[in-house]
Simulated scan of single mutants.
Amino acid sequence: MTQIHSTALVDPQADLHESVAVGPYSIVGPHVRIGAGTTIGPHCVIEGHTTLGRDNRIFQFASIGAAPQDKKYRGEATRLEIGDGNTIREFVTINTGTVQDTGLTRLGDDNWIMAYVHIAHDCVLGSHIIMANSATLGGHVHLDDWVFVGGLTGIHQFVRVGAHAMTGFQTRLSQDLPPFVTAAGNPAEAQSINAEGLKRRGFSAERITLIKQMHRLLYRKGLTLEAARQQIDALRGELAEADADIAMMQDFLIAASRGIVR
């Protein structure tokens, strides 16, 4: 049976798998759906049109699915979707979307969200992301897979961070950060590539070397962005396993709407 503490308030219309656990004094609203194996700690509020997948762990005092902090919000039935295997620590706040965007805030799978993190309306997070303590995302931010967001980092509205990128402690990020790049500072400046993270994920030495070449073309050769893109494209075919990395970099640079950290 569902393990609901006697002091928890779970709306009868909420849809909880029988293996879900809800801790003392937590509140679960009527439009919430929670998948198998997920645990909700004490003093949490799960509200709004919120769906949680399997095997998530929500720690005490988290606020999940509250209305967006947007003055244009008029009570529309916008949504929050959280995938499987996520860890959401103490005092994390994650808001639903707005009708000015897709109406959806979304997190993928296997994300590690540390204490005091804020994920605003309409943010879209991929999978395997780490957000360190007190990192904050403005509305409409997109984080691709395997991103690491350093503690106390603030990311401006509508910014996108590419896969495997990383921000250092107390970074202020107001432009798009390309894949693989590490940035730090206020304002953010590109430092290097996230080589250690790539090694941990099984990237070969040759593949990392080619990613370093892309970084040099973007940041070390004094090229215009268009010239850098052309030379990055010319790297295709040098290493078959890296062609997908080149394509991902090119797609990101073409789509960057706020300019890139450079």
Rank of each mutant, 00 (worst) to 15 (best):
P30G: 02
H121M: 03
H17Y: 07
N86K: 13
A115Q: 05
Y116V: 02
R207N: 14
N133W: 01
L223N: 12
G222N: 06
A120S: 14
L217T: 11
L143V: 04
R160F: 06
I46F: 07
A135N: 07
H215Q: 10
G48Y: 11
V117K: 13
V149W: 04
E226A: 08
R262L: 12
Q170P: 00
D101N: 14
A188C: 10
G168P: 03
N133T: 09
A132D: 04
T51H: 09
N133I: 04
P24R: 15
A247Q: 15
Q213T: 08
I119C: 06
S63I: 12
F169K: 05
V161L: 12
A21S: 15
Y219G: 01
H140E: 06
M166K: 09
G65V: 11
A242D: 14
P178R: 00
I113C: 06
D55T: 07
A67D: 15
D110V: 07
Y73K: 09
V147Q: 02
S134R: 02
T102S: 15
E81Y: 08
R160P: 00
I129F: 04
Q230S: 11
T78V: 11
H142P: 00
R220A: 14
R54D: 15
A163H: 13
L223W: 09
L16E: 11
T38G: 11
Y116K: 04
A115L: 03
A242I: 10
Q170F: 00
M214S: 02
G75L: 08
T224I: 02
S19P: 05
G97Y: 08
E76I: 04
S26R: 13
I246D: 01
S127V: 14
T105N: 03
N95Q: 14
V20H: 13
V20A: 10
G237N: 07
Q191I: 10
G197E: 04
I232C: 03
Q170N: 14
L173P: 00
I232Q: 01
P30I: 02
I254V: 10
N95E: 14
I4V: 14
G48C: 11
I64C: 08
A135M: 12
L218H: 01
A77V: 06
